[in-house]
Design a protein around this nucleic acid. Structure first.
Lengths: 218, 218
DNA sequence: AATAATTTTTAGATACGACTAAAAATTGTA
DNA sequence: TACAATTTTTAGTCGTATCTAAAAATTATT
């Protein structure tokens, strides 16, 4: 059984491995967890003894199959709790992350089963991220960043890349939410910013950086 | 801020102090928490440095006012979560304790406020124990153990003293629940056991030990 | 290829929370 | 009161998780 700290490391390493597709470096883990490389080395030794990941000195780590399953269960719990907080406790989507970080470590298979039931077996969390099932399976909606949209074409927001309160509150402010329909009116070559229309209403300008963090489907 | 371990000690010490009314001994804490006296001595030193309790060597501990407030907040969270598990997630009253022991340590004032709202500001948990409010205030219903009931008199079950799954499952089996009306039909002098009638239905025999753990109101 | 820069690991400390064994204090009893 | 029994504390150890500083290995550069 994994401790809270072990679960947090595993989750972070899993995400980094998914993003890069390669072995994960000690420093990247330390950066992500706001800790020191020495602490990471200690922890990955512990996790590799437990069979959660494989590790060669100076060569980075790979998450094992057992590790992936364990990571997906933590992610499942995190996303179910986020969904619960928004759907049942009226949290805003920028308020859920910190609390879900705590709740994801609660150990009770019955609790998670019942929570999933209460929520109607949701497939996506409030940020549009897929919720793995009990077996770790999930399906990702096909999606592409708003950045890649062509002029005069539209898409529906299905997820956000960045979950920070600052970004989510900004999206709230300009009226972007999961499910919003966005049409690209114009692209400004100078800085890559865009003029967009949300739900057929008034148009807004967003920076290139923002457009990279909003994901659409056709 | 208190750690999980500190919160658990505090809660236990608070309960022991309430029961006995006196200073709480090292051994009684160790027994309750299934730990060793030496560990308790370590912890009460830490808690007394934090102003949570006052402590004189060899003389036991007293919970400070600050300690009582902190303890009541943990108890509030525990009992709200138990209520949530039964009311919203269809847990049985014998299944909630272990999970609530974990959930009570989640730190989020907003979460607890919203949970309280969702549940309609409940005043008692599924075992009949009062839920303190944000200020630590609560009212206990006037109640007495079934043991003290007079023959031919009745009362309504308002709480149970023992929260163990074994006891609660037994109560389920014989049809006793919070709100059940119990009439004392006869008392067996030999062993103190009782013949009772539940909700005006068939009569049952219960042991003296059971009758001590069921609390009634008029 | 040799040296410089970077990354990673090791060594050694620290805090928390637990333990055992032994010492000290308190309480009970002859 | 004095000795015995019990309770509590102290001293020392251990595992987890963290850190800093220094050493070792890898990668980049001239």
């Amino acid at each position: 059984m994994l401790s809270f700290a072990e679960e947090n490391y595993l989750k972070t390493i899993y995400h980094l491995a998914e993003q890069s597709g390669e072995s994960v470096s000690t420093n990247s883990i330390a950066d992500e967890l706001n800790t020191k490389a020495a602490s990471v080395t200690d922890m990955i030794k512990r996790l590799s003894v437990k069979g959660i990941l494989s590790y060669q000195k100076y060569k980075g780590v790979h998450v094992s199959e057992a590790g992936k399953m364990a990571a997906l269960q933590v992610i499942r719990k995190h996303r179910l709790w986020e969904t619960f907080l928004v759907a049942k406790l009226k949290f805003n989507w920028d308020e859920v992350h910190e609390v879900a970080e705590q709740l994801e470590h609660i150990r009770s298979p019955l609790l998670i089963r019942r929570l999933d039931e209460l929520l109607g077996h949701p497939k996506f969390d409030p940020h549009g991220d897929p919720i793995p099932d009990e077996n770790g399976r999930f399906n990702e909606k096909p999606k592409s960043p708003l950045l890649e949209l062509e002029i005069e074409r539209s898409g529906v927001v299905v997820a956000v890349q960045d979950d920070s309160p600052a970004f989510l509150q900004y999206l709230d402010k300009i009226g972007i939410y999961i499910g919003a329909k966005i049409k690209l009116v114009d692209r400004i070559d100078f800085d890559g910013s865009m003029e967009i229309q949300i739900d057929g209403r008034k148009t807004t300008f967003i920076s290139k950086q923002v457009s990279e963090n909003i994901w659409l489907t056709e």
